[in-house]
């Protein structure tokens, strides 16, 4: 478990989710440990290309959360597959600036989920990122160790 500040903040966030609930389309599936949560994310509305699909987003919180960003991946296992999206690799790694360089300690777990949801909602074509296979072959298990380049801000 994480130290003082992180533990307190995570407990606060969990308590808030418990009392106030999560935004539509986002469900806290489980929190196996205080520092590892899984959310189910689906995109609502008619215009989405992901209608009827549900994805599992796993957040791992480091010791120094919220100063350090959480480790966020889409689950890629027998039950869930990561969404087909130009910023999501087939191993579940996500190229999104707020998970790396633009993380800010004022963000929280639910804010991350909302960002991911809107990233999916604004997408128009289902495809994997360029060089997906190459990346997945050599990717570290922790996406925070990848040096990301954020070049496309349309979706």
């Amino acid at each position: 478990m994480a130290t003082g500040l992180a533990t307190k903040r995570l407990m606060k966030e969990l308590a808030e989710i418990k009392t106030k609930g999560t935004p539509p389309g986002i469900v806290l599936l489980n929190a196996v440990a205080l520092d590892q949560w899984v959310f189910l994310i689906s995109v609502l509305g008619d215009e989405t290309i992901y209608a009827g699909e549900t994805f599992a987003l796993r957040l791992k919180f480091p010791n120094r959360y919220p100063i350090d960003s959480p480790e966020v991946t889409f689950l890629a296992d027998a039950e869930y597959i990561p969404p087909l999206h130009p910023h999501v690799y087939s191993n579940g790694h996500i190229c999104a600036s707020i998970l790396g360089a633009e993380w800010s300690p004022v963000l929280n777990a639910v804010a991350v989920c909302i960002t991911m949801q809107s990233m999916l909602a604004s997408n128009k074509k289902k495809e994997r990122p360029e060089g997906n296979d190459r990346y997945v072959r050599s990717a570290p298990s922790n996406p925070k160790l990848t040096r990301w380049q954020y070049d496309d801000d349309t979706v």
């Binding site: 407990m11 606060k12 308590a15 489980n30 929190a31």
Partner: peptide, 14 residues
Amino acid sequence: MDLNHPMLLASDDP
């Protein structure tokens, strides 16, 4: 971790 863990409720928030 259990989401109904008593520690989650026993927060010392006002």
